[in-house]
Write a protein that binds this DNA or RNA. Sequence first.
DNA 1: TAGTTTGTTTGGTCGTACCATATTGCGTTC
DNA 2: GAACGCAATATGGTACGACCAAACAAACTA
Lengths: 245, 245
Amino acid sequence: MTAKENGMTFPKKPPTRAADAVIATLEVQIMSGALVSDTPLPTERELMKQFNTSRTVIREAIATLSNRGLLESKPRFRPIVRKPDYTAALNAVSGAVGHLLSERGGVKNLYESRVFFERALVREAASAARRDDVRELREALAANAQAIDDSDRFHATDVAFHGVLYRIPRNPIFPAVQKAYIAWLSPHREKMLRSPDRNLVNYKSHERIFLAIEERDPDAAEEALVSHLRAAWEYVRVTLDQEPL
Amino acid sequence: MTAKENGMTFPKKPPTRAADAVIATLEVQIMSGALVSDTPLPTERELMKQFNTSRTVIREAIATLSNRGLLESKPRFRPIVRKPDYTAALNAVSGAVGHLLSERGGVKNLYESRVFFERALVREAASAARRDDVRELREALAANAQAIDDSDRFHATDVAFHGVLYRIPRNPIFPAVQKAYIAWLSPHREKMLRSPDRNLVNYKSHERIFLAIEERDPDAAEEALVSHLRAAWEYVRVTLDQEPL
DNA sequence: TAGTTTGTTTGGTCGTACCATATTGCGTTC
DNA sequence: GAACGCAATATGGTACGACCAAACAAACTA
């Protein structure tokens, strides 16, 4: 009698790994808050008693959860529980994306997607920004202006200015997207030399964008944003000495 | 002689796990093509000879790479090498995103981001679509029309129609984004009842979008897209019986 | 030749052991 | 009594060896 005829077992046996159970349970405990965020996980030997399984399984589960971003494990320390937000989620792909960026056109594709996204952002801002948003944007612009002489501070205020744009639609996903762009593109940005001259040019661009938004002119805002980012891209490309991106 | 006195030990020893070396090596081999995509990895016992290490380390490395998306491992089969593309990258976040969706407003945020993204897509299509793009869109629309009576086929052609929009900017990231949206939102879509009536309404929306694009009218295209997706959302929301999304 | 059986390979799990480092706790010293 | 230093312990990282069950491959039978 073969297994086939025997029991009307599941048509498909669920190939369930023991580790999966542990993973699932821990996952639920983390997401439900039973395991508090930012606190260390119980020790491995504790968990193996708890789940009545071997350390192998526990360690595999920890590795998996760690790679999924629900745990943060440093070499010789207890893993830290991390209830992920959208930022962490996007962060989890950073490894895979890193490779894509190293391929031909990878960075350009990502940068173009950013331009595409921010174009839509400034249109949205120009047509739907609240008074508070405009004020916030104005303040970010002012801070940007005062940092023209200080390239480090300029970069920070630059990011902050764009960050306001990402917040205006009030969708928590968007700021996470910005962080992802920053994480993935900044390594390339850092290669470009900074100078007050460039800062001034960029500030002027920000000013144009802001004014267009303030005047509720989506087309002008989009155009300003595009020329701003395209120019920055050209600058990066040239600075990197024709490196085939 | 202890290891301490012996080697001119680094001021900071890089907390290098043995598994990391294996991971790095395999990573390079996969990305460089030395390990061909879609082929099975060598057996674990083979790898442990190759790297002169224990199976423990090999398995940890496999688990890590698997979670990073460079390997695809089914329960009792050899892991399959997968050189990741953007789709795989976004796929890697699906786990974390899944939980976010279950929280209040999660699905709505994601859906809104899709609306936001596709708004920009149709604008782009209306202003920059090539003749071929328009033709492709027309064909997708025709296929959509012929599937109104068949809800399953309608859904497929619906996705395909939107898919053309994602391809028009010719950025490989975008189709990956669409796949991610489909994967994350379709579970909710499946809850809604389908009917030729709804299909007809949706088809009409697609038609409006197409015509606006054909006439190179970004504003009209955007408006048509927004009303299309917002209506679909309302329908989902109502169908789900006020479930707090 | 087709289908079955048997033997081997291989991934999944387990237990134990050992090392190096973190952590803890105790005892010394000021 | 508090601060410091040092030893004991706890804990994570690695390794070895074993067993099981499923998958795979080969031999075998009808």
